[in-house]
Write a protein that binds this DNA or RNA. Structure first.
Lengths: 357, 357
DNA sequence: TTTAGCACTCTCAAGAAGAGAGTGCTAATT
DNA sequence: AATTAGCACTCTCTTCTTGAGAGTGCTAAA
């Protein structure tokens, strides 16, 4: 049912998609012939368009208007026409150059990735920080603040940091806290949640209390679906006509701010069909009411099963997929590289030990 | 020039502002009399309105339309009419209750504050993380990753954390790194940038290299104008008619994404006139072309000169100031409390030492 | 199989007309 | 002296009409 299109029909579908993504206007037969210097008459094009409409790849907003791609039309285009293309060399260079500017500055990685992605796709971007499914304890720091309150800073071997305020049963001086932290740091170094929970070290009551909170914190990290979420380029999308006119599309922006919805969306990433490792969710695919007029292009990065994140782009269904998909893929590759170079070194060793034993 | 208004004129100005903020429609004399059961004829109201227009507090979109407040009108309203009002008890309770839900979870503080602020002001919110002008060294952690690359995690006494990737001249094993970190932690504990720079501890070349980067990192933190920026509630503002219609207002959203512009805006906070500790920037006040149709309500929180942050709200000029201003003020009070309880304890001691010596 | 030709459909822009909301001014009223 | 009723006038906004334009599908010829 998918492949019955003739070469010429594919060409025409591709041109309609292309022209529509550029102009946001329904495309008529005459326009197409003139614009792309087709060696065909308008009548022929009209016949082919009628066929494509029959198949469900195009539709007419009203009886005597041009054609617009349907969801299926875009999907056919994405899977059968632009599939294997790679990002052209110069674009790759620009991106990697921009990205490696902030090589040192870990805190800038994710926002920068989001910014670059937004800029190059001219859409809104989503990037989640890399997130490991298993944390290894590295170091805890206890900072006395006021009375019974203590600020705990917990560092994992991958470099992830989490902070928590804890309230002790009674005030404890900084020296005592530091001593407790030192002990925990010695006995827990490199251990996972399970390892610590299975063989709890000997400890006094203060240390036990803290250990409980450490475990709780590590657990919470592991339970989370993804790391912190970074967004950028919302304004790109807001200036598209779809978002100015239809309330439908505007509602989709809401999904962007509501982190819980976004989490949900990202969580389903792995289930769908991919295009060369990149997920393309067109018009919500029936599942997402809010995404009716929109598309989302997502990819996972990192080291599968160990430390991963998601990144992607959100925009109107009328999106330049031919450019967006390779951009997302390339960005995912860049981040994967970064993660395996800088964050997985230790984890890898750890993992090797784990699987050996 | 400001106080020549009669009581009645103030009343009418207030009602025009109120009605316009509610309906977004120009208000006419008849509407006003009917809606607020004024004991005046429409003609009288018309005369007063003509006077207010003369003074520059109201204007007419066109000859035979109702009146709309001008920038000056809003400003008069804000400074002379709603000034001293506090947030009503129940609203305060709701907010503090929402906020203290996440008392423990330090990482949630800022995003939660932004979310609450957005929700209660029904506008877009801005919150910057607290930022201290002077950092005190607490702890450094060095994590070997791959080859010559090392991930450095630096913790300050206030609990601020910063990360950096550094590339060494030659590969160094984790043991060596840990040892170096231990030494630095002993000699630098509690010191400021200047103190460390003035009396560099004896150290081997590896430690020296790292110390340089530590100082660089601390310095960078101190140089920054503000901590991380958290935004929320953009969708609130996007559904306002100003943003749907006029391209002017829509351009202002751009300012929200461009962190550098936002930094600039926040930096100027302290210069302007305040309304009970809260800055109200109406229509960009001539300075901000992008904010022509918009207003920003900002407040600083924290401990002045020690550790501070900024928070506020961004929305159309037609904003319910009477509610927004107290909300922002209350939120700033809450965060100030939080900061002095949990993050300034150590710094305070430190500071006391500093000023004593 | 392709194409020229043509009648037909539907939208969109422009213009016209009338309703509605609001104003300013004048003269009367309190 | 301040307030108000009355009224002519102005300007926008909605509704309706009309014509141009773009595009289609179908039929018959190439």
């Amino acid at each position: 049912m998918m492949n019955e299109l003739t070469e010429r029909q594919r060409l025409i579908l591709a041109l309609v998609v292309r022209h529509y993504t550029e102009t946001a206007q329904p495309v008529g037969s005459a326009r197409l012939v003139e614009r792309y210097k087709l060696d065909l008459s308008t009548a022929t094009v009209r016949n082919e368009m009628a066929a494509l409409t029959e198949y469900g790849y195009l539709r007419q907003p009203h009886t005597s208007a041009g054609r617009v791609p349907t969801e299926e039309g875009y999907r056919y285009f994405v899977t059968h026409v632009v599939y294997p293309s790679d990002l052209p060399e110069p674009a790759r260079d620009t991106i990697s150059h921009q990205f490696y500017q902030a090589r040192q500055d870990v805190e800038q990685w994710m926002p920068l990735a989001a910014s670059i992605l937004a800029q190059h796709s001219r859409a809104a971007s989503i990037v989640t920080a890399p997130h490991s499914e298993r944390s290894h304890y590295k170091h805890v720091e206890l900072i006395s603040t006021q009375g019974r309150q203590v600020l705990m800073v917990l560092v994992m071997t991958g470099g992830e940091v989490s902070q928590q305020i804890l309230t002790l049963a009674e005030p404890v001086v900084q020296e005592r806290l530091s001593a407790a932290a030192d002990r925990l740091n010695q006995v827990c170094l490199g251990k996972t949640t399970e390892e610590i929970a299975a063989f709890p070290p000997r400890a006094d009551s203060l240390e036990k209390d803290i250990l409980t909170l450490v475990l709780q914190d590590m657990n919470r990290g592991e339970q989370r679906v993804s790391g912190e979420i970074f967004l950028d380029g919302l304004t790109n999308v807001l200036s598209e006509p779809e978002f100015l006119e239809s309330g439908d599309a505007r509602r989709a922006v809401h999904l962007f701010e509501e982190r819980s919805l976004l989490q949900d969306l990202l969580a389903r990433t792995t289930n769908n069909a991919t295009v060369g490792g990149v997920q393309v969710l067109i018009g919500g695919e029936g599942k997402w009411e809010e995404l009716k007029q929109c598309s989302v292009v997502l990819a996972r990065y990192g080291i599968p099963g160990l430390i991963t994140g998601t990144l992607g782009v959100f925009g109107p269904m009328r999106m330049p997929y031919a450019r967006t998909i390779p951009t997302v893929r390339y960005m995912a590759d860049l981040l994967s590289e970064l993660v395996s170079e800088t964050m997985a070194g230790d984890d890898n060793e750890q993992e090797r030990k784990d699987t050996r034993g």
